[in-house]
């Protein structure tokens, strides 16, 4: 009972601290790269939260009220479920499912459903366009991520995330399967529609799926996006960078360091990479990224042969 409570607290803490870290790192990256004006990057997220909190909620004509309220909650819940799958040390794993990799693979399509619902339920043009856009791109993200994750579970001979971490004791998957992590990072930017892959909530659609939401609903949605990015980084750290494995420091410290490393990498890439038009990225995803994911899988298979 105490352990369950502690695990719950860790996941909730990761949600809050991680999302704050995303805002701070993103602000710092923007300031360092000269993309945004200098300001106090540690206080800015709190000011933004406060302003979202105080802005009254918007409504549209005949929205699907249930789905509109529920979609941000669902998205945040899926991020929290992803965080719960992360193993911290051999002895502390909040949810140690034997099919953890498959469950993470299931969270991505479920997040697609939540994003679609968020855009569809507002009963307005721009959100609907954003939702359609995300679904057409989301299918390619899901496929790429699934093949990459199957590749990771091959040397572990298990679908359990802790077994995947344990299988990297001699060699991390980032070296064993060099294509895996870059593809996974691209999927991460896509799933939380961040930076150049922000097609669902992009400015050319007046913020797409969230163009009609404001106030606390929008705060929850942004919180969910940041939390999804954190969950993605933590899963990526476990699947490719050896999770809790490392010298001197205890396991959880390594998990946090590696998660932060992937998070910083994602946010800096989000600031630096060029933005393609959605249709060109769709072609790129199917014609280049998906075949690369196949190559990664074959590579993993050949490498795993005894």
């Amino acid at each position: 009972m105490v352990e369950t409570l502690f695990a719950l607290l860790v996941v909730l803490g990761m949600l809050a601290v991680g999302s704050y870290a995303v805002a701070v790192i993103d602000g710092a990256a923007g300031a360092v790269l000269g993309r945004t004006a200098h300001s106090n990057v540690f206080l800015l997220p709190i000011y933004q939260c406060a302003s979202f909190w105080l802005v009254p909620a918007n409504t549209t004509e005949a929205p699907d009220a249930w789905a509109w309220r529920l979609a941000p909650v669902l998205y945040l819940t899926f991020a929290a479920m992803g965080l719960a799958l992360v193993p911290w040390s051999p002895s502390f794993i909040p949810v140690d499912l034997t099919t953890g990799i498959v469950l993470w693979g299931a969270l991505e399509p479920l997040a697609t459903v939540a994003i679609f619902l968020h855009g569809w339920s507002a009963n307005s043009h721009f959100p609907l366009l954003g939702a359609y856009r995300y679904v057409s791109l989301g299918l390619s993200y899901i496929l790429v991520s699934m093949f990459v994750l199957i590749g990771v579970s091959l040397p572990a001979e298990s679908l359990q995330i802790s077994a995947v971490v344990e299988s990297q004791r001699e060699l991390w998957n980032v070296i064993r399967q060099p294509l895996g992590l870059p593809l996974f990072l691209i999927v991460g930017l896509g799933i939380s529609f961040w930076g150049p892959l922000n097609f669902a909530d992009s400015s050319d659609l007046a913020e797409g799926t969230s163009s009609e939401s404001s106030g606390r609903a929008k705060l929850l949605w942004q919180f969910g996006r940041a939390a999804m990015l954190v969950a993605f980084s933590a899963i990526g750290a476990s699947a490719f960078l050896g999770g809790w494995l490392g010298p001197v420091l205890p396991g959880p410290a390594w998990v946090i360091l590696k998660t932060l490393f992937i998070l910083v990498l994602l946010l800096v890439l989000g600031r630096l990479l060029p933005r393609l038009s959605p249709d060109r990225f769709l072609t790129l995803a199917w014609v280049l990224l998906l075949p690369l994911a196949f190559v990664d899988l074959v590579w993993a298979g050949v490498e795993a042969l005894p």
Partner: peptide
């Protein structure tokens, strides 16, 4: 049935998304 339950989640999430479209 740990695999089947989770497999049902991801199969149906994709299928129903396409169905809705």
């Amino acid at each position: 049935a740990v695999y089947l339950g989770v497999a049902l989640f991801f199969m149906m999430a994709v299928e129903m998304m396409v169905m809705a479209l």
